[in-house]
Design a protein around this nucleic acid. Sequence first.
DNA 1: ACAAAAGTGTTCACAATACACCCATGC
DNA 2: GCATGGGTGTATTGTGAACACTTTTGT
Lengths: 229, 229
Amino acid sequence: MNPSRQHIQIAVDAVVFGYRSASGLSVLLIRRRFAPHAGAWALPGGFVRDHESLEEAVSRELEEETGVNIRYLEQLYTFGDADRDPRGRVVSVTYFALVKPENLRIFADSDAEETAWFDIQKLPELAFDHPRILKTAIERIRNKISYEPIGFELLEEKFPFADLHTLYETLRGAPIDRRNFKKKMMSLQILEESGERRKQAGSGRPAALYQFNKEKYFQLKEKGIVFEV
Amino acid sequence: MNPSRQHIQIAVDAVVFGYRSASGLSVLLIRRRFAPHAGAWALPGGFVRDHESLEEAVSRELEEETGVNIRYLEQLYTFGDADRDPRGRVVSVTYFALVKPENLRIFADSDAEETAWFDIQKLPELAFDHPRILKTAIERIRNKISYEPIGFELLEEKFPFADLHTLYETLRGAPIDRRNFKKKMMSLQILEESGERRKQAGSGRPAALYQFNKEKYFQLKEKGIVFEV
DNA sequence: ACAAAAGTGTTCACAATACACCCATGC
DNA sequence: GCATGGGTGTATTGTGAACACTTTTGT
């Protein structure tokens, strides 16, 4: 067949997850300025340019539309049904990103009327087939957490143990025994005490702050980590 | 940006795995008839047409090029580096397929000079970035087997237990204790004895033939199967 | 009778689970 | 001094791993 007869556009879209123990797991959405679906909430994304890789395209779009600083990015899935975009045939390669709370600051730009974080429990209506994409992403993060310590990419550099605990409970959607969880986490030896303690807080005993030991984490990943919580 | 300025082609490629206890895990390759890489071995695939979904495109290409009858197909990964195809910018959505031995019959067609199964231990040189794609697929099948009983899709309808055992040992690349393996497999209750016994064989005790209980398998999958061998 | 593959159970070690009380701080 | 969240250990159960001999057939 002659490929020059193809009229398919290629786009990238990103599902960016952020987490704060107070507000839970959130997704970054933009409100579209232009048709189709002007005014509707959607995943950040856009068309791939001729000479950039897919990853470069996602990073650029995220930078342009939201200003977030992404530190973890992996491909999620490619959606290519013929009728998924009213403008014509668009195949979208979707990505899955995690950002630390330090980088939750966002801004809107020319293509996006507004940018906001939404708790995954309280999502607005979404444009295109983005509900399906988001559903796929949430499944992925739920699965992923059971074999890879991605808390690493979602928490602040130094964090109280309770934050990690709450993150896992949120993603699992079920309570996890505090002592057993800590025992297992510590046995992996990827956490170290920073010596510091939390200053803020309301009342209650101040919590020790931990940080990930990246070297041990990557060593573990090499060997094929097994990690069931 | 204006998407009409894009000049990116979209293709699909498939990594088709087949298995026979005698010959091991094999991949279906075609020898290219046309440039670029004419005469080289490559994964079956081709350009997506304007009105077909990605899955339709893979199925069609596989049918056209090899005649195999695919019963399991899942998306693998999308490769989109700017320089991966000398003809220009081509983004390839790759798929991962499993076929049963009954369906190993293949034929070449107009685009393919020749079609053949290759043991994954004895692969020829491959065109384009297909070595990378194949590497990704092999990783995927290795991982997948540890949490989903895909033997289901690779073995004949009725099979001796030893076939399943050998398949897992092949994919794991390490011996697995026969008794422990059987114990675990049987505890999942997704296998049932067919009552028949193997007729063929050389010498040795004839083996009971098992078959998968699809209903129980899907029930198990619903609940989130956990399956470490 | 012997070679070749199938079939089968028990013991041991470790990992997962269940579970409740004391500690340090703010107000 | 009390409310709030942080921190810790032990006993029980379940699961994974190691391990060798007997049975049925073909030649």
